[in-house]
Amino acid sequence: MPSLKNALRPAVAVGAALALFTGMSTSAQAATGDFTYINVNGDDFTLHAPENGECFLLVSGARSANNRTNTRATVFAEQGCEGSRLVMQPGTSVNFGAAVPHSVMFG
């Protein structure tokens, strides 16, 4: 007959794993506000309450941008949030000139 100690080990292991899993899971948070930009063709775009940590494509590259969210926006030279970057604090605007960014991530 197994001892109580041996019978409790699997239950403790399962409980610890469940606590670790549920403690680490977080729901995605969205920035409050809008991120607007004008692309190189002169078209206006708006990202409404963008999800933090998600990479967004800036269609045809952004000539200028306005971060009207409550979180920082990091714009990247390349699609997929790669390459050189520039951090835009909440409430800031930027005119990019010739080196236009092609993606943005919030948070």
Rank of each mutant, 00 (worst) to 15 (best):
M1G: 06
P2N: 01
P2A: 04
S3E: 03
K5A: 11
K5Q: 10
N6W: 08
L8K: 03
L8S: 11
V12Y: 08
V12D: 09
V14H: 01
L18F: 12
L18D: 04
A19V: 15
L20F: 15
L20H: 02
F21M: 11
F21P: 02
T22P: 03
G23Y: 03
G23N: 02
M24C: 11
M24P: 00
T26I: 14
T26G: 13
T26H: 15
S27A: 14
S27W: 11
S27K: 15
S27E: 12
A28L: 12
Q29P: 07
A30D: 10
A31T: 04
A31Q: 05
A31V: 04
T32P: 06
D34P: 02
D34Q: 12
F35W: 07
F35D: 04
F35Y: 10
Y37T: 06
N39A: 05
N39I: 08
N39V: 05
N39F: 05
V40I: 15
V40L: 11
V40Y: 04
N41F: 09
N41T: 06
D43C: 02
D43H: 06
D44M: 07
L47N: 00
H48K: 12
H48C: 01
A49T: 07
A49S: 11
P50C: 00
E51M: 14
E51T: 15
N52A: 11
N52S: 05
N52F: 03
E54G: 01
C55P: 04
F56S: 09
F56G: 06
F56P: 07
L57S: 12
V59G: 10
S60D: 13
G61Q: 09
A62T: 13
R63S: 15
S64N: 14
N66K: 11
N67R: 02
R68A: 13
R68H: 06
R68E: 10
T69D: 04
N70D: 14
N70F: 00
N70V: 03
R72G: 07
R72T: 12
R72F: 10
A73H: 02
T74L: 01
T74R: 04
V75N: 05
V75T: 12
F76C: 04
A77T: 14
A77W: 07
E78R: 15
E78W: 09
G80R: 01
E82I: 07
E82T: 14
G83S: 05
S84Q: 11
V87E: 05
M88L: 15
M88C: 04
G91F: 02
G91T: 03
T92A: 05
S93M: 10
V94L: 07
V94N: 07
F96D: 06
G97V: 00
A98K: 11
A98G: 03
A99E: 11
A99G: 08
V100S: 12
V100G: 09
P101G: 10
P101W: 01
H102A: 14
S103H: 05
V104P: 09
M105A: 15
M105T: 15
M105H: 09
F106Y: 07
F106C: 10
F106T: 10
F106G: 08
G107A: 08
G107M: 12
G107P: 08
G107N: 09
